[in-house]
Nucleic acid binder design. Sequence first.
DNA 1: AAATTGCGTTCCAAATAATGGAACTCACAG
DNA 2: CTGTGAGTTCCATTATTTGGAACGCAATTT
Lengths: 260, 260
Amino acid sequence: MDKTQENSTGTLGKALEVLNIVASSPVPLRFTDVLKLSDQPRGTLHRQISNLIEEGLLAMNRDHSYGLGLRLLQFASKAWSSNEFRTIAEPHLQILHEQTGETVHLGVLRGIEVIYLDKVESRQSVRMYSQIGNTAPVYCTGVGKAALSALSDDELNARIGLIEFRRFTASTLPDAKALLKEIDHIRVEGNAYDREEHETDICCVAAPIYSHNRHFVAGISVTGPAYRITPEILTSWAGITRAAAAAIMANMATQLSPRA
Amino acid sequence: MDKTQENSTGTLGKALEVLNIVASSPVPLRFTDVLKLSDQPRGTLHRQISNLIEEGLLAMNRDHSYGLGLRLLQFASKAWSSNEFRTIAEPHLQILHEQTGETVHLGVLRGIEVIYLDKVESRQSVRMYSQIGNTAPVYCTGVGKAALSALSDDELNARIGLIEFRRFTASTLPDAKALLKEIDHIRVEGNAYDREEHETDICCVAAPIYSHNRHFVAGISVTGPAYRITPEILTSWAGITRAAAAAIMANMATQLSPRA
DNA sequence: AAATTGCGTTCCAAATAATGGAACTCACAG
DNA sequence: CTGTGAGTTCCATTATTTGGAACGCAATTT
């Protein structure tokens, strides 16, 4: 009776934990590898994996290592194409892209991560799945900081408390204090910036998107290479980025949720 | 003790059944709608849904209808980018696209469906998730028929027995007999064709890809609009499509699975 | 060749989590 | 204000999951 906030989703939660272990590993894991990373006994883990494989969520490679199953793609395809928020935002991303000529991202806040829901770019050089569905830390992305700025102070503090700050580049915000200070700025200005805080040579300007009660917060951003996008250019896009966010929120109010 | 091949994945299977009900519906479902489609009592279903929501696999909209959760995107992103087969095939898709100038698809067989794993096209007009992860019936797609042709007769017959033939266009194969006949052709020729059998004005030429033991079968195809791609042009791509499939299989043999 | 080690797999009594009927709440309609 | 329908909560019963131990099989070591 001490296990600090036990998992309340029972069997499902345990299954997903296994899935997560496989998903999080950069290198394919074999049975014993998963066993070491989970804290489940062998028999149990074996049955869990068998079930996941039978359901198509996990796949066993020929060398007995595991990978994520194709059924996940099937679900995700549906999740993406039927997502109301994304559908509403889509034309606005397109417009913002035409206005700037740079890559536009749409991301939503989930815990202390940003999940990228969509992107629009001209040269489709990078493959799409390489971004959509990807997650990034809140504290070093434009979309993430914009989203945080839309939260109530209570929510904000609760989430920031969970962040483990890691330095990605020289300009990554180092701690909660720096992040809170920046969020104050964002709340006043209405825009968040990422100035090479996550990846060197990548900068962006972002604006928050939120529902009336702020249970749902997201962000939109325009991203480009730092050598081409000077701080001045970035600042000059702040207005249209906010405008895109505002337009999306206006559409949400009319098109989403008859009630609530 | 009569329930015809009971689900053996226990709780997980039940959870995924709920997820599937939500995923399969063209229109958002509310609690009672799901209740009617599942055969679970209210209390049980409610808890299952709660768990799925807590895990991020399901999301509740503000009008109490359900949609698939964003965590699925996260998993799918990983599943896609780390998929060995897709990685191996990718450069060959690219080459085939450059040779033909048309859209190239990669799909794998799962049961009696094809799951599209990747595509390459020039005008990135259609959004990517609109294809990748999508499924289509085996019997009316080039990739599907190519994949079937690689199966052993036993496997083939078992799967064809499960198909419910539905007419999509005037040229959709109407029944198992027609499909088996076509597969005989494909086995001889080495190529499958889809001549507007799934969608009007869309045709393609495909070739099968399979592992040594044929436990894994897939296909690659070149697709284009019928008004531009005459049957002669399509036929002229048969060779390079087979060549691409052969190249992928050669790479699989060397790069995949040290053992087995 | 025999013994050992590591890995994946199977089994079953005990522990635990899921079940499902009934009851409760709230919002809206008659 | 009563009735209906939708969503939610509760808890004794029931069914599933658990996890320790043992098995089979290769590859490696003695």
